[in-house]
Design a protein around this nucleic acid. Structure first.
Length: 230
DNA sequence: CGGCTTTGACCAGCGC
DNA sequence: GCGCTGGTCAAAGCCG
């Protein structure tokens, strides 16, 4: 990824924060820096200053680091040429890599939310859902994980509602919905065609509740996550 | 029996 | 308008 496109991305993330009705990354993403990773990927890492100013960003980082550490093979490094000795999340096999995926970055940024869902009744919502199933989308957040496990434990309870074989991939895409009442968060899980070891997880929407996890550590970590962007 | 997964059908969006 | 594709629905079956 060129520095120009990275600059455009950062600009778009900033705009997303100022105009929450637009499609894009979650606001927290504007507190992350991005480094190019291959042709299509970005590696996300916390800006040291921003992280100090925005505790929730630290919480996210800690959450990911702790979950990655739990999965093993966490490797934390610094990268001086990115300025200020910025902290990178450099994770190895079977750990939770947080990065934005190039393809979905474009998808996220190109989609706009057109209607405010909050003022619609249930019936109206159903009608709208039927009429514009794909047009109206919640904010999305996606990342790659190199893992043998398809569904990562993020502290929330999910129910699978569909599976689809998408074009040019050997592996089916699975669709999950949060089991909590009134919570419309969805996630898609698929394996990268070019590298089946990579799992692409895409979250859509925001949770309106705390994680329902019975493991204390994960629950604590996930609650940090929930505090600011779920 | 309730909650979950599977899976074929259906529908909307998009490109031609 | 038509065909393709992705996303969702919902019935059926499975499992604890």
């Amino acid at each position: 990824m060129s520095s120009t496109s990275q600059a455009m991305l950062n600009q778009s993330l900033f705009e997303e924060q100022e105009m929450p009705t637009q499609m894009g990354f979650f606001p927290f993403a504007s507190n992350l820096n991005f480094a190019p990773l291959g042709n299509q990927s970005l590696k996300a890492f916390p800006s040291s200053l921003a992280a100090a100013d925005v505790p929730s960003t630290i919480n996210l980082t800690e959450t990911l680091l702790s979950s990655a550490a739990a999965a093993g093979n966490l490797k934390q490094t610094t990268c001086d040429n990115l300025g200020g000795g910025a902290q990178l999340l450099s994770l190895q096999r079977s750990s939770a890599n947080l990065w934005a995926w190039g393809g979905d970055v474009n998808e996220c940024l190109s989609n706009k939310r057109t209607v405010d869902d909050h003022h619609l009744g249930v019936a109206a919502m159903k009608m709208k859902k039927i009429k514009s199933r794909r047009k109206v989308r919640e904010p999305r957040f996606c990342f790659k994980t190199m893992s043998d496990i398809d569904v990562l434990d993020d502290g929330y309870k999910w129910r699978k509602y569909g599976q689809k074989v998408v074009k040019n991939t050997q592996h089916p895409r699975s669709y999950y919905r949060c089991t909590q009442d009134n919570c419309r968060v969805k996630k898609r899980v698929e394996r990268l065609a070019e590298d089946p070891r990579m799992v692409i997880t895409t979250y859509e929407g925001r949770h309106v509740h705390s994680p329902s996890h019975d493991q204390e550590d994960s629950s604590q970590a996930s609650s940090h996550l929930n505090n600011f962007f779920w």
